[in-house]
Each structure stands twice: as C-alpha cells, then as structure tokens.
C-alpha cells in the first residue's frame, strides 16, 4: 500500500520536472528542472534499493548524486559566462 503511494508521488515529481524541462522559456528554467530531477531520481534509486532489498543500488544513487551535481555546476558556470 505504501509502495503504491510512494510510486505515484515520485512519478508525479518526475512528470512535472519533465514538463518544465520541455516547456521552460529560458535556459535557467531548464537547468533548475534538471537539478530538481536529479534530486527526485536519486530518491527514487534509494527507494528501489529499499524495495528490492539490494545494497548495490545505494552505490548507484551515490555516484548519481555526486555527478549530477558536477553537471549542474558546469551549466551554471556557463550561464554566468565564467568558463
């Protein structure tokens, strides 16, 4: 029962991030949508590790969170004309 509720809420989060990613007028909207999506998706991976009871999925979530942060930082430096 709680699994169904978690899946529906996380699916709604992914769907709204996706809509903002496609419809966003400026580049800043898309960058923020990608960052929010990476946060939601790392929580999805942790939940899947709980659901399947396998520890290696937590490693995937860890690498995912670190490298999505790097990508977001690179896009932000591009927007402020830093690099």
């Amino acid at each position: 029962m709680f699994n169904i509720i978690f899946f529906v809420l996380l699916g709604l989060g992914v769907l709204f991030c996706f809509l903002r990613l496609l419809l966003g007028p400026t580049i800043v909207d898309r960058a923020v949508a990608l960052d929010t999506f990476s946060t939601v998706t790392s929580s999805i991976l942790v939940f899947l590790a709980l659901f399947f009871k396998r520890g290696i999925y937590l490693d995937v979530a860890l690498v995912y969170a670190i490298l999505a942060f790097v990508g977001s930082i690179v896009i932000a430096r591009y927007i402020e004309k830093g690099i």
């Binding site: 996706f18 990613l21 496609l22 580049i27 898309r30 960058a31 990608l34 999506f37 990476s38 998706t41 995912y64 999505a68 990508g71 896009i75």
Partner: peptide, 9 residues
C-alpha cells in the same frame, strides 16, 4: 540539457 535528462533517465 535535455541530453543530460535522457542520460539520467
């Protein structure tokens, strides 16, 4: 940016 989204998903 959307390429990054495709890769993540």
């Amino acid at each position: 940016i959307v390429t990054g989204f495709v890769s993540l998903i």
